[in-house]
């Protein structure tokens, strides 16, 4: 690890201004992604702006038909929250599948969504639920937020403050973990709203996306069987040691069917 300056602001404004004043800064949330890359000397920020002291970025709250999660909410807090379990149990389930205990006790939803790892779990929920990413400057709809591999709509210095997730009637998440890293090779969230079914897919492509062919099939018939024979084109899908693009496309179908079955059973 290279030396760096450490800052611990207590407000959003202070965090942003510290960030803007520094040479090559980074926000530090749970550190589960950032710190390993610093230890490997792949990332070398001059300044770390630690967000753990910013109260406005914490907390889990239900506001009418929305679940509002502070960006600094840790995975473990989501996994065991009564409020989340009442509002979107599938989200608590998803958070409980991230990494291991140690990772869940450090990692945060803001860090995960900001990082936009193609194999991260939360992005599936963000797109499936049509969440809004609220930053220090604006509100970004999930449709615009994820752009490409590790690329989001965030501008330099822009900070996620909270994530607002519409509460569906029912939802379910299925993950096919990478046997080595246990990140998602493919993860699918299926969410049923009054006005339709939304399917969010992570792991398969460069970033999370909505699977429109699956949504169309499920809109007509919300049963696993409805997905039989639905084409999932694998163009642009990720391919690595663990899964080819073709296999990933297949897994999207399997995970979607299983998620639908879980949703119906919930």
């Amino acid at each position: 690890m290279y030396p760096f300056n450490y800052h611990k602001p207590s407000s959003v404004d202070e965090a942003v201004s510290l960030f803007l004043d520094a040479e090559d800064p980074a926000y530090l949330s749970g550190g589960m992604t950032l710190i390993p890359t610093m230890k490997q000397r792949l990332a070398m920020p001059t300044d770390l702006v630690d967000l753990s002291g910013v109260q406005a970025m914490r907390g889990i709250e239900r506001q009418d038909q929305k679940l509002v999660l502070g960006a600094f909410t840790r995975h473990a807090e989501v996994a065991r929250s009564e409020v989340v379990a009442q509002a979107i149990p599938a989200l608590a389930h998803l958070a409980g599948l991230i990494g291991d205990n140690q990772v869940r006790y450090r990692g945060t939803i803001g860090g995960s969504v900001a990082n936009s790892d193609p194999a991260a779990d939360y992005p599936a929920a963000v797109v499936a639920l049509g969440a809004e990413v609220v930053t220090n400057k604006r509100t970004i709809s999930s449709a615009d937020y994820f752009q490409d591999l590790f690329e989001t709509a965030l501008e330099p210095g822009e900070m996620i403050v909270r994530i607002e997730l519409p509460i569906p009637r029912r939802a379910a998440y299925r993950k096919f973990p990478n046997p080595a890293s246990r990140y998602a090779v493919v993860g699918v969230m299926v969410a049923q709203f009054d006005n339709g079914v939304q399917v969010g897919v992570t792991g398969a492509g460069p970033c999370a996306f909505r699977a429109s062919t699956l949504e169309a099939a499920l809109a007509a018939d919300l049963r696993p069987e409805a997905l039989a024979g639905v084409d999932i084109p694998d163009a642009g899908f990720n391919a690595d040691l663990h899964a080819s693009a073709e296999y990933r496309a297949h897994l999207v179908g399997v995970m979607a069917r299983r998620a639908v079955a879980d949703l119906l059973a919930s």
Binding site: N178, P179, A180, S181, D240, L241, H242
Partner: peptide
């Protein structure tokens, strides 16, 4: 290619 636990599966 399998130089870490991200890819080498114990």
């Amino acid at each position: 290619l399998t130089g870490s636990y991200m890819d080498y599966c114990m």
